[in-house]
Amino acid sequence: MSILVDASTRVICQGITGKAGTFHTDQCLLYGTQFVGGVTPGRGGTTWRGPQSGRELPVFNTVAEAVRKTGATASMVFVPPAGAADAILEAADAGIRVIVAITEGIPVLDMARAKRWLASNTPHVRLIGPNCPGIITPGQCKIGIMPGYIHTPCAPGQAGVGVISRSGTLTYEAVFQLSRLGLPQSTCVGIGGDPIPGTTQVELLEMFEKDEGTSAILLIGEIGGDAEERAAAYAARHVTKPLAAFIAGQTAPPGRRMGHAGAIISGGSGGAAGKIAALRQAGFEVAATPAEMGAAVQKALSRRQHSA
């Protein structure tokens, strides 16, 4: 099993005719994702062709038309920052259920307005991102920019590790370690590093806890905000599965943004030490360095087995 996407997910790309949209749609097709079309206003009625896969997909002027003619249920957004929030809202209004916004640099005010609109008008829609690597259920569906070959799918009837991450590159490193250790993944979700994520760590913890195909959860956080503290508080009350975590930015100087728009320590909050303490108190096995993320999952699983 998995969360949010699987082999039956029908995907379109908003911005499919752009350079990034073309490349990553093609990579997702090569992985096996069921892409059914794309959207570029003004290019409707044309045909897109994957440079490596050779696959051809219809291009539509609007998401509503794409949904009507292809039955799409998910969208990958590669629209430039100035129009990306509108693209997200267009997808939600057209009936798309899972929106994966890869775009980096969307104005914070645009995302604040978009998230409020989504909550009020389409609460059933799940937005992943923005500024994220995407989501993958290994062997079934990849929507985004992550390298597919490092992921290990679960065998039939086997449960895997669910991954939640604010960092794209640390997602890849964690998955590589898990695969090297023989630990398959159920679903990996990069929520992005912006201050206003479409989906929170708490929401994903809830989904993975309910998923029978997830045996353990790895949470990769970073400095800035209080998302990890809130995730720890939720996990302590509601999550029964083995938990592991890593917090990036432990050596970052206070008051300076480190890469991600959300990774900033201010007003005495958002520091790594407080997040690590909260996670440990909630029962997470916390890795001291990025190189130990896979080992932390192993320890969490072993600890649960010994206590059973």
Rank of each mutant, 00 (worst) to 15 (best):
Q298D: 13
P51S: 00
Y149V: 15
T137C: 03
I135C: 00
A308V: 14
A291R: 09
A64W: 10
F176S: 15
Q281N: 14
G198V: 03
I106W: 03
V79G: 02
G129K: 01
G95H: 06
H238K: 12
R166M: 03
Y149S: 15
R303P: 04
A231W: 08
Y31I: 14
C141R: 00
V108S: 13
P81A: 13
G160N: 05
S266F: 11
A261E: 04
P123F: 08
A85D: 07
G50Y: 04
T199S: 14
A85F: 03
V239Y: 05
Q201M: 15
C132D: 08
F35P: 11
E209G: 12
V163T: 04
G42L: 09
D93S: 14
N131A: 09
V36W: 05
C13L: 05
T33P: 13
R230S: 11
F284A: 05
A227F: 08
P195Y: 07
A64C: 08
G270Y: 08
A235W: 07
L218D: 07
I96P: 01
L183C: 04
F78Y: 15
A119R: 11
G190R: 00
A101N: 05
A300D: 06
A252K: 00
T200L: 12
A85K: 04
M1E: 13
T47Y: 08
M111N: 07
S53A: 07
I88Q: 06
R304T: 14
M293D: 10
A92F: 03
A101W: 00
G105E: 11
L219T: 13
S302F: 09
F23L: 15
L4R: 00
V39N: 01
I143V: 14
E285S: 15
A155I: 05
A82E: 15
G162K: 08
G83M: 04
D211G: 09
I191V: 13
T251P: 01
V5F: 02
P130T: 02
T46A: 12
F208S: 10
G21M: 08
Q27S: 14
V59S: 05
Q140K: 10
H124G: 13
V77A: 08
S120L: 15
C154I: 03
A261D: 01
A295S: 14
G221F: 01
A91V: 02
Q177C: 05
Q140T: 13
T187E: 02
T17Q: 08
E203Y: 11
T73Y: 01
I128A: 00
Q201H: 14
P58N: 08
A155R: 11
H151D: 12
G83A: 03
G168V: 02
A82V: 15
P147G: 11
C141Y: 02
L219E: 09
A216L: 06
G37F: 03
L301V: 10
D6F: 02
N61F: 10
